[in-house]
Simulated scan of single mutants.
Amino acid sequence: MMLRLENVTVRRQDRLLLDGISLSLPAGAFTVIVGPNGAGKSTLLRVAAGLIRPERGTVRIDGQSPDTMPSMRLARSRAMLTQDHAIEARFTVQDVAAMGVVAPSSGRARLRRMVEVCLTETGLRGYEGRDVTTLSGGERQRAHLARVLVQLRWQGPRTLLLLDEPVSAQDIAHQMRVLSLAKAHAARGGACLAVLHDLNLAAACADRIVVLDRGRLHIEGTPAQILTQDMLSDVFSLEFSRPGIHRETMRPYILPHDLVSSPIVQAPKGTLPCISQ
């Protein structure tokens, strides 16, 4: 088992952020965490990365606790793309992508090749010399994704990739690119745990989905098991979201709004009309 959390509880001051979470993530799996704002998704990811020590419970990465692993060993086992990746210093995109690896002189040519591959895969070929502070939010996010991928690939395929809202700043084409890279990492024998807010993206790409609600594990399973009207009503208070099944992939999807059952509101004269089904 690549990642295993047992009865993890995290409290910050008087607030219970995670309450008895148990979760297993095998090699080869792409698992997505979803849930309402404040459900504990990012906290769970940081616990899995060894960045937060739980008040109770245990965390194991390939059988070892992050607390007992030397920092370099931990860095060789997992890498995390956080939501906040601001850089004030004027590094080039190529420099940022190489930051996750301390390469000996004999390995610098290999590192350059790996950086080139990962920048190409993330859609940043030709940006190598650009100042990272001049990039758009989505481009900067992908530069840091390239850094994370270089860090893991330097060590080999059996590593843990942790992604916190990796497509939050991406257009739809780059959303597909980023999630395809995450799935490919798992397919090569690693594992990926990602936080997503878009339930349709989660259903389209995940092997398994974990639903958090108020710091607790509400349910976990395949997309077809998870994306139901009962879950949408219980966790997100969506009463009329109409889950459906995609005919080609047989994966579920939703119309994420209650407008389908709401009365039509007349638009003021001179504005765009409302669209109803």
Rank of each mutant, 00 (worst) to 15 (best):
residue 108 R to Y: 12
residue 109 A to I: 06
residue 125 R to Q: 15
residue 40 G to A: 12
residue 182 A to S: 09
residue 219 I to A: 06
residue 237 S to E: 06
residue 119 L to A: 01
residue 248 E to A: 09
residue 153 R to M: 07
residue 21 I to P: 03
residue 47 V to C: 13
residue 113 R to G: 11
residue 205 C to L: 13
residue 182 A to C: 05
residue 140 R to V: 00
residue 210 V to H: 04
residue 152 L to T: 08
residue 116 E to M: 05
residue 75 A to W: 00
residue 77 S to D: 01
residue 138 G to A: 08
residue 91 F to M: 06
residue 119 L to M: 09
residue 136 S to K: 07
residue 129 G to E: 06
residue 188 R to E: 12
residue 76 R to K: 04
residue 212 L to T: 02
residue 242 R to L: 12
residue 269 K to P: 11
residue 208 R to P: 02
residue 200 N to G: 12
residue 14 D to W: 05
residue 89 A to H: 13
residue 216 R to Q: 10
residue 184 A to F: 05
residue 214 R to P: 03
residue 250 M to W: 07
residue 211 V to S: 00
residue 225 Q to N: 11
residue 215 G to I: 09
residue 180 S to H: 11
residue 202 A to W: 06
residue 205 C to A: 15
residue 56 R to T: 10
residue 116 E to R: 09
residue 218 H to N: 04
residue 74 L to E: 00
residue 41 K to G: 15
residue 103 A to S: 12
residue 200 N to C: 09
residue 54 P to I: 02
residue 102 V to M: 14
residue 27 A to V: 14
residue 124 L to E: 06
residue 3 L to Q: 10
residue 264 I to W: 14
residue 16 L to P: 08
residue 174 H to G: 00
residue 115 V to C: 10
residue 75 A to H: 00
residue 234 D to K: 04
residue 16 L to M: 09
residue 233 S to Y: 01
